[in-house]
Nucleic acid binder design. Sequence first.
DNA 1: AATTTTATTGCAACTTTTTGCGGATTTGAT
DNA 2: ATCAAATCCGCAAAAAGTTGCAATAAAATT
Lengths: 254, 254
Amino acid sequence: MHPIQTQMLKRERQAFIMKQINLHNRILSADLGLMLNVSEDTIRRDLNELAEAGELVKVHGGALSKSYHYDYAPSTTYALSEKTVIAQKAATLIEDGMFVILGGGTTVRELARLLPVDLKATFFTISLTTALQLCDHPTIDVIFLGGTLVKNSQISVGGEVISRLNEIKADLCIMGTNAIDTECITDTDLEAVQVKKSMIKASKRSAVVTISEKLGSTQKLQVCELSDIDYLVTDLPADAPQFLGYRREGLVIL
Amino acid sequence: MHPIQTQMLKRERQAFIMKQINLHNRILSADLGLMLNVSEDTIRRDLNELAEAGELVKVHGGALSKSYHYDYAPSTTYALSEKTVIAQKAATLIEDGMFVILGGGTTVRELARLLPVDLKATFFTISLTTALQLCDHPTIDVIFLGGTLVKNSQISVGGEVISRLNEIKADLCIMGTNAIDTECITDTDLEAVQVKKSMIKASKRSAVVTISEKLGSTQKLQVCELSDIDYLVTDLPADAPQFLGYRREGLVIL
DNA sequence: AATTTTATTGCAACTTTTTGCGGATTTGAT
DNA sequence: ATCAAATCCGCAAAAAGTTGCAATAAAATT
């Protein structure tokens, strides 16, 4: 990153700035000043002009690419399209007559929304929003596993839920997760972790649904080992390179 | 989860925070401070700004995803203004430290919405929507009484709920009703009626909330005699002529 | 080519924004 | 009730931005 020697025209300089922006999505005024060997005042004037022309977004300290994803979609589910893909894949795991335990989270809710209309199965859930979604389905049975409600995540936890789960032997359990790496599934809330453990124990098979962004992340509390789950469902194709290290005997990646 | 090295623009930092929030639904200020290598004060200021912009929900210690918040749609509620009046009157029955059982229906949900923000009490409910509404309250405890869900009313019924209710001795029970006349409270759904009976039995005192329109109507299944309830809360003033025939020893009309 | 005009640039003084810190205060959990 | 963590408040330093202006460079005009 050496300073440019020769005298530059304003046009060239601004072209150079745009190149940097498109390359790195961000740039600091101070860095540009050094690179172009002009005062930061000049840089700022350039950035303001380019911002005015809509070429970039000026912020305190530098500028960001217009395509930079700093504008978040409000009031809609994050990464909805990915979650829809996941939900559709996960839905194929459910067959008529099954007993299925569903957890909380927006991905599972999306699954609940996309269940085939003619499916006849029995669902247990600990999530208020998932339960509400399931109530919209005409032919399934829905059983809510009551308990103390965690306000943030709107799921029920506590001994009540766990002892109920101990009485159940379901065919399948589908849950989201906060974090997953090649070793284990982890989460942040102790109570929720307890319940998830029980959900897995109460099911013949367990599926974890998650957007691929979460692959490789870790939280403080362990739900289970990766080997304890039977299906991993993400938005990626099953043969994606991101699954390196995740593949093993007995784990089906969808 | 390694700290970020290079100097970050504020906007980038906030975008990073939003990503974490959307990914993990909740995040601690302390963790963000470590990840981004800035002071917690800065994180808090960011979180407050994002909260102000409606991008997330700020809580003590960190922030939550906005996607977990019950979006109440008041426009769809029939006779909302009457129900609001009722809810406000009924709310006066609840005092700090009480154990309260809440039923389903839009009037009760409205009550849940209008609880004083500083109320400290424990609520039991069988209604998904009432429970969701209660989850928005900062200081109360909420316990959902699980069971088989009735899809159109989104309440749980069945032996499960009833045996749970048998274990509870609450101070107050507040329920809506389908019909009420000078003799008794009646309803249409057998399962729901069973649960209501148990709710009343599980409470020292019982309140029925209903819009005055329903006064004088009758359904096929009896929940209880009018004398079994302690409070009748409607949109009418307590001395309204419509209450002729309803007044009796031990029934307070609000 | 000389000259006028216009635009660009850097500088200095001043304002605003951002950030971290100490201490008072509130909050949440025990 | 008690105690530690989280938050709030004000402040001060550093960084970034703004403005006016003079010097200089580029462009236009004669």
